[in-house]
Amino acid sequence: MQQDQLIAELQQKNERAFERIYQLYSVSTYGIIFSITKDEKVSEEILQDVFMKIWNNASSYNPEKGRFFTWVLNIARNASIDKIRSKDFKNKRLNLKSDNFVDILESKSNTSGKLDAIGLQKYLDILEPTCKKLIDLLFFKGFTQKETAEELAMPLGTVKTRNRVCIDKLRSTVI
């Protein structure tokens, strides 16, 4: 079944189409979620929530606005960031064991393996270093624009503008 037909059937609430969508996208979607949350159980919960949102909001997907996979990943990214910003998640993190911090620190500094796993590394390699850093912080590490501005020691307005320019460059490279 071709992707366009599969998506059309999903939008008509076809359960088989939904199952196929899950088979096609769940692994990469989980990878994005886990790269943000760093917690297997939380990532699994978010993955379920993401696919419920896909099922419930399939009719809102518009192929003229972007690829289906991008739509799915945006849902996953937003759900993940919402979760890690929640009070419940932050309170659970206060009680982490010290051995968990090594993984957190290592993952904050190295996302290249994750990018390769979802096939984005070749596109990001083309971008200038500032764009790479912005995209890494904002999209793969879940930083807010304000946190990114602080991390890179640049004004918030500059982060917003450069982010828009970088995403446009990335979009033109991918599409």
Rank of each mutant, 00 (worst) to 15 (best):
A17R: 00
S28G: 11
I81E: 01
Q23P: 01
S59H: 10
L94M: 13
I104T: 12
E15K: 14
D88Q: 15
N14S: 05
S98P: 10
F101D: 08
V50F: 07
G113D: 09
L156R: 10
C131V: 08
T161C: 05
E147S: 04
I32E: 00
R171C: 03
I54M: 04
D125H: 10
S43F: 02
R20E: 04
E150V: 13
R67H: 08
L10I: 05
I75S: 04
F139P: 04
E15W: 02
T130D: 15
T144Y: 04
T130E: 15
D39H: 07
L127I: 11
W71N: 02
M1W: 05
N57D: 14
I75G: 08
T148Y: 11
I33C: 01
L124N: 04
Y61Q: 00
Y25P: 00
A17S: 05
S80C: 10
F140Q: 09
G142P: 04
S86P: 05
K160C: 06
R162N: 11
F89V: 08
E45T: 07
A117D: 07
A117S: 15
E106L: 15
I7F: 05
R93Q: 15
Q23I: 01
S86M: 11
L127N: 12
Y61F: 14
F18T: 02
Y22W: 06
T29A: 05
L47N: 04
N95T: 14
I32K: 11
Y61V: 05
Q121M: 11
E44P: 03
E45S: 07
T161E: 13
K92V: 03
A153E: 15
F89Q: 09
I54Y: 06
K108W: 13
A76W: 07
I167C: 02
A17G: 01
D49E: 13
E128F: 10
L94Y: 09
F139E: 13
G142D: 07
K92Q: 15
L127H: 12
D88I: 12
E128W: 07
I32L: 14
Y22M: 06
E45C: 05
I33G: 02
I32Q: 03
G157M: 06
I36L: 11
D103P: 01
K133E: 15
K90H: 10
N91L: 14
E147Y: 04
V165A: 00
Q3M: 07
S59C: 06
T29W: 03
I36G: 00
E106K: 15
L152I: 14
L137S: 08
Q2L: 08
I46S: 03
K92M: 12
R93Y: 13
L124P: 06
N74I: 03
Y61L: 01
F51T: 07
A8W: 08
S86R: 13
K108T: 10
K133T: 13
I21A: 01
S43L: 05
E147T: 06
K146Q: 13
Q121C: 00
I175C: 04
E128C: 10
F51R: 09
C131S: 13
E15L: 11
Y25R: 02
E44C: 01
R77N: 09
V27K: 12
K132T: 07
A17M: 02
D125N: 14
F89P: 05
G113R: 14
L96N: 13
